[in-house]
Amino acid sequence: MTTSPANKRVPPEMKKGPQQNTLMVSYLIHHLRVFIASLGDLSRHPMATLMTTAVIAIALALPAGLYLALNNISGLSAGWDGSTQISLFLHTKVSEKKAQKFASRLRLHKEIDKVKLISKDQGLEQFRKISGFGGALEFLDDNPLPIVLVVQPVVDPQRPDKISHLVKQLEEEKLVELAQLDVQWVKRLYSLLEIAHRGIWIVGSLLGLAVLLVIGNTIRLDIQNRRAEIEVAKLIGASNAFIRRPFLYTGLWYGLIGGFMAWLLTAVSLSFLEGPVQKLAVLYHSTFRLSGLEGDHILVLIGISCGLGLLGSWLAVGRHLSEIEPS
C-alpha cells in the first residue's frame, strides 16, 4: 500500500455518496418507492396475488364471523335476561298489608326493576289450576300458602354474579322465609358463551398461525424466484435491510389486502343472513337486529392482518435471506 500523503487523498467524486442533508428525504422516498413498487409487483401476477389474499381473507373472516355471531348472541341473551325472576316466599304469618309495604320498599331498590305481589288467594288459585291437586285443597280449612313477591332484578349481562348477590341480600330480610332464583339457565348460557368465546380464541389463533404460514411460504417462494437478483444486489453492496425491504412491504400488502377482503366477506355474509334473521326476530316479537363489524373492529381486523403479514414475511426473510450468499 502506498504511504505518500498525496495518494491517501481520495478523489472526492469517488467516495462521495448522496449529500447528507438530502439523505433522510431520499431514504423516505426510497421507502415510498419500494412500498409502491411491491404493490406493482403483486399486480403483475393478479391471479397468484388474489389467491394468496383470498386464503388470508377466508382465514381471518372465519374467526371474525364467529366473533360477530357470539356478539350477536350475547346481545340477544341480554334481552332474555328480563325473564330472570327471584321468588320471595314470605313467612306465612306476614299480613298482606305488611307485604305490600315491603314490596313498595323493594321497588325503590336500585337493582330491582319490578316487584309483583301474589297474595295467598291468588297463589291458591294458581296452584289449583296448575297442579291438578285442586281437589285435595278442598280438605284444607286454612290456606297454607305464603304470600309471594316476584322480583325482577335489573340485569347487567356483564355481571351475572350481581343477581346472586341480590338474592342473598333479600334472603336476609326479616319477612322473607325463602328466596329462590331460577338462575341456572342463565349460568348455563353464560358458561356456554364463555366456552364459545374461548373456542373463538383457539380457532382465531390457529387461523392466525395459518395466515402467518401462508404469507411466510409465499414470501419464501418469492425469495427463491428472485434469488439471482438478491445475489447480484448483495455483490454490489446492498445491505440486508435494503434486500429485506421489498419482501416486508409485500407481506404488508398481503396483510392489508387480505384484511380488507376479510371485512368485505363478513359484511357480505351478514347482509346475506340479515333477511331471515329479521323474519325470525319478528316471529319472536323481538326488535333484535344483527350488528356487523363497526369502526374499531374493522381497524383491529385489518391491523391484525397487516401485523400477521409483516410478521410472516419477516420470519421468512430472516430464515431464507441469509441462505443466499454470492459465491
Binding site: G17, P18, S26, A228, I236, S239
Partner: peptide
C-alpha cells in the same frame, strides 16, 4: 455478467446507485 434479465439495461446499470440511495435525477 450476472445481469438480471427481468429488467432493461438501464435498470441493471442503475442498481448500485439505487442501493446507495442516489436521487432519481442523479
Amino acid at each position: 455478467h450476472h445481469l438480471l434479465y427481468d429488467r432493461p439495461v438501464f435498470d441493471n446499470v442503475a442498481m448500485p446507485l439505487v442501493i446507495q440511495g442516489y436521487r432519481h435525477k442523479e
